[in-house]
């Protein structure tokens, strides 16, 4: 579904991603872990098409389509979804209006008529329930005055509404208490199917107890330095990242 080959990207002329490879197939969940500043959010931003990030090499395809040449909105319409690490507040834009616009723009791209108001409301109700998202929040301005946890739940609520093929969750677990974490994870598990895929970026093993990944990758200094199964996450939890860092740094030293 998603194929990343030798991806290199920089921001402010500083190279952050230094040749990253990743293959994600339909039905799979991949976890990406790694120390702070290793480039996880950069990867998410590059995939979603944020302007500030310049791709300097490599290629990315989503179901065979060259992702990098699409505008951010077309990437979303092709089925990419990024749950932001820091969802922003947009006062004056109502949550529900925004969602309706998004749903219908994506439908229009696929040649579908706008969703009937009744059907839309039905979906909203259903998906709100899924992530226990307070109905009152849906009518407020987008994320305005939401708590950290409410913002994260709103991301998953949007994910549920837009039904993307490939979802990237950037530290959706950070700032969530254990109950909220369980709710979000349940939501994601409910949405998992053989036709879609998830890339779950996280810092902690904790989330992966609830969203069980098929593969775990460690990102460090802009590259995936180790891949494994869910046991790797446990190992990292136990030993930390230092042993990995040391071996990568030593290799780098040797190369120089």
């Amino acid at each position: 579904m998603l194929s990343i080959k030798n991806l290199q990207a920089s921001v402010d002329d500083k190279q952050i991603l230094k040749g990253l490879n990743l293959e994600v197939k339909a039905g799979e969940v991949h976890a990406i872990m790694g120390p702070n500043g290793s480039g996880k959010s950069t990867l998410a931003s590059v995939l979603a098409g944020r302007d500030a990030y310049e791709v300097t090499g490599g290629e990315v395809t989503l179901e065979g389509k060259d992702l990098l040449e699409l505008s951010p909105e077309d990437r979303a319409r092709e089925g990419l979804f990024l749950a932001f690490q820091y969802p922003i507040e947009i006062p004056g834009v109502s949550n529900i209006n925004f969602l309706k616009t998004a749903v219908n723009e994506i439908r229009a791209y696929k040649g579908l008529a706008p969703m009937e108001a009744k059907e839309f409301l039905k979906q909203v109700k259903e998906k709100q329930k899924l992530v226990e998202f307070d109905a009152k929040l849906a009518n407020r301005s987008l994320n305005e005055g939401f708590s950290g946890g409410e913002k994260k739940r709103n991301e998953i609520f949007q994910l549920a509404m837009l039904e993307p093929k490939l979802s990237i969750l950037d530290e959706t677990d950070s700032g969530l208490d254990i109950d909220a974490l369980r709710i979000v994870a349940n939501g994601v598990n409910h949405l998992r199917s053989k036709d879609n895929a998830f890339v779950v970026i996280t810092h902690y093993q904790r989330l992966l107890e609830y969203i069980v990944p098929d593969f775990v990758h460690v990102l460090y200094k802009g590259r995936i330095v180790k891949s494994g199964t869910k046991e790797l996450a446990l190992e990292l939890e136990e030993k930390g990242y230092d042993w990995l860092k040391e071996s990568v740094d030593a290799e780098e030293g040797a190369a120089i």
């Binding site: 979603a48 505008s71 909105e73 979303a76 947009i90 998004a102 949007q158």
Partner: peptide
Amino acid sequence: FYLRARGISEEKARVLLVHAF
């Protein structure tokens, strides 16, 4: 960017933001 990342065209996103303003 947030709005566009949800599939909303740049043009519509601008309209939404100016209405919001």
